[in-house]
Design a binder for these strands. Sequence first.
DNA 1: TCTGGGGTCCTAGGACCC
DNA 2: TCTGGGGTCCTAGGACCC
Length: 426
Amino acid sequence: MARFALVDCNNFYVSCERVFNPTLVGRPVIVLSNNDGCAVARSNEAKALGIGMGAPVFTLEALLKKHDVAVFSSNYALYGDMSRRVTITLGQLVPDLEVYSIDESFLDLSAFRAADVPRLCRTIAQTVTQDTGIPVSVGVGPTKTLAKVATGFAKKCPSLGGVCDICDPVWHERALAATPAGKVWGVGRRYAEFLKVRGINTALDLAKADRAMIRKRMGINGTRIMDELSGISCYPLEANPPTKKGVGVSRTFVRGIDDLRELREALSSYAERAAEKLRKDGLRAGAMEVYAMSSRFRKDDFYYNTATFRFPTTTSDSPEIIKGALEAFDTIYRENTPFKKLGVHMRELTREAAEQQLLFDTMDRTRASALMKTVDALNTSMGRRTVGYASSGLAASRLAPKAWHTRFNHKSPSYTTRWDQLLRVT
DNA sequence: TCTGGGGTCCTAGGACCC
DNA sequence: TCTGGGGTCCTAGGACCC
């Protein structure tokens, strides 16, 4: 029988902050999205206060003050580095590993004896916490979906010591009966509503539901969820992640912006960033989509538009991508519209290979590629945007901050990735 | 007033072709 | 009134994930 484990870091962003600031342990702590907009991670104490996932900060202000909640902006450099450390530790303990997200990894434990699995999982949890400072929960089941279900119990029931194995059929069925259908992996808000109307309330109800009905309403994934819940594995472990289908960069502004020069500057910087991401992954794009929108919370006057730009040949060249993005944006820009979000999305990605020769090319691609390599090397060794493009704007001063810059008013130091921000023990 | 970012997959429908 | 049948490609929209 197949056996999967899911290792899930508890309240990951909050736990990262706590590693370097132990005074936060036992306190309610939340970490915010970009622009300090929403709560995207909450400690158990913060969850107990009723702070929901994605709750807008402006609706929480009284609560945060009353309970002295510690508030942090997202520190992606810190979380990314801590995630890498967790992955390294796991890689040393098991042979087959799929990094599923920044805070979750699937393990294939099929090769281990059933009786040894609980002990192995406790060792994994203890080792990760010891080596990285991040507490984790481990769930085990015959499919990925069931491993997810098990992780839910590992988190909820402290008596389990952070590990829950539901491979045993008795525990398997009990766990499904105690899991709301809406908590199942792949069942979101919409499907949960639909299932409720049909009287399907628990994961067990879903596993035994009318297959044709589920197929019709939820598509092929619906029946896969049913199979997975019944112990039939549909999603194998993906040790080697497939190449990306797209690469996107987008940002929301703190307030609406209608000034064309500012918008072009913001978009240029996103295009530049997207080009960097392509080169980092060894990819090139054949086409690019540029999109712009006003506030989606102003339903009466919502503006959204996209434009596609096709490159003469696949490219990861910053100037070419910036130029294309600005050209596409000019076709969707609308005057007197308070734009809240701009983005670029690179599509039709191919692996980087020898330079494609166009019969009548307007640029020397070999030289351009060498220049990009130099730019990337400088920015890697000396910090992001050591060299960049003027179209993306010059560095903002404290006197002249950019309206489109993202707000991070509560950011902790990048303890692990910046020499000048190392933790000082005095 | 203020409400993130980066992805994936599936499905339906239209255009077009033979 | 009758009014093919596939196949492909593309796009838009919907749903989900962390």
